[in-house]
């Protein structure tokens, strides 16, 4: 996971920001309670979004209290009480982080990947026992992804497919009983996965050119050793369509859900946060660009 799904902070109300952070804390503490302290470091914004979204489809009233925690020992912060969705999101967080670290270790023998995946091994085994089907589905999609990358797949749509399907799997949470709600969530997940995969590929362009590594955008649009900026200029329009269309599909699915709470936060992320991020990265203000300056 990449952490691209964030709210557009300046537009959040302070109350909404508090609740958002409350969910973030709640997820972090749930991971701590279920898996111990080290896996808490794997916490991501994308899974926080999943937690908020799933919780929003249920009518349980929102409750929480101010608490201290290891990361912020001085000041008490608001946290939302955990529920089944927090547990689900925390399990998925552990599974995904484990796979991504293991992938890093297998590919590049990176030290972080090696030690991280070792440290998460126990937690991962526990999570796998709880969600065996989800886990094997995720593993299958990641395998597809690796095969596509190895064969240097030259279509962005095809390359995005495995990760998008993985996200669909994640969003189709078993705790949600209503069939059509689950289907709608799945379509949201699929399109969000596409968006994450493509935005990450665009964000990584300069890095991948430098290291000569695989990137579907370079393959589909026949990168011929030109200047990075002029290449980006050439592909920007097509990618803008692809990304924004995916977002419009997310929005369509979202408007079919019965949202019982957290509407302000979800509206902010889905209507503003994602598109602001898209524009920032397409115009070269992504996180990788900042590093290179």
């Amino acid at each position: 996971m990449f952490g691209y799904v964030e709210p557009d902070k300046p537009e959040l109300k302070i109350r909404e920001f508090d609740v958002f952070r409350g969910y973030y804390c709640s997820l972090c503490k749930t991971i701590g309670k279920r898996y111990g302290q080290i896996p808490r470091l794997s916490l991501s914004y994308d899974l926080t979004f999943l937690y908020i979204l799933l919780d929003a489809t249920s009518a349980f009233p929102l409750g929480g209290r101010r608490e201290r925690c290891i990361a912020h020992p001085m000041k008490k912060r608001f946290r939302v009480f955990s529920n089944i969705f927090a547990e689900y999101a925390s399990d998925m967080n552990v599974i995904l982080t484990y796979y991504s670290l293991k992938d890093k270790w297998d590919d590049e023998k990176s030290l972080l990947g090696g030690t991280g995946s070792l440290a998460l091994k126990m937690a991962f085994n526990k999570a796998r026992k709880l969600h065996p089907e989800k886990c094997s589905a995720i593993e299958g999609y990641l395998k597809d992804l690796r095969t596509l990358e190895k064969n240097k797949c030259d279509s962005v749509d095809e390359a995005a497919e495995p990760f998008a399907s993985l996200m669909r799997e994640l969003f189709e949470c078993g705790h949600i009983k209503d069939e059509s709600t689950r289907k709608t969530l799945g379509w949201m997940g699929y399109n969000l996965g596409r968006w994450i995969y493509l935005i990450d590929a665009f964000d990584d362009l300069s890095k991948d050119i430098k290291h000569k590594s695989y990137n579907p955008i370079l393959c589909q649009y026949d990168f011929n050793g030109e200047d990075v900026e002029s290449f980006k200029e050439r592909v920007r329009k097509a990618l803008n369509f692809n990304l924004t269309y995916s977002l419009s599909e997310i929005e369509k699915a979202y408007s079919l859900l019965d949202i019982e709470k957290n509407k302000g936060i979800l509206d902010n992320i889905l209507y503003s946060g994602l598109i602001v991020k898209t524009d920032a990265i397409l115009q070269g203000r992504g996180k990788n660009e900042k590093e290179s300056i």
Binding site: E11, F241, T244, Y245, L247, S248, E251, D267, N268, Y271, S272, I275, V276
Partner: peptide
């Protein structure tokens, strides 16, 4: 229709009013 859908996404009130 495709082009409209794409452009339509930016027309939602939340984004349009602020930006």
């Amino acid at each position: 229709n495709l082009n409209q859908q794409r452009a339509g996404y930016r027309q939602n009130p939340y984004y349009r009013n602020t930006y």
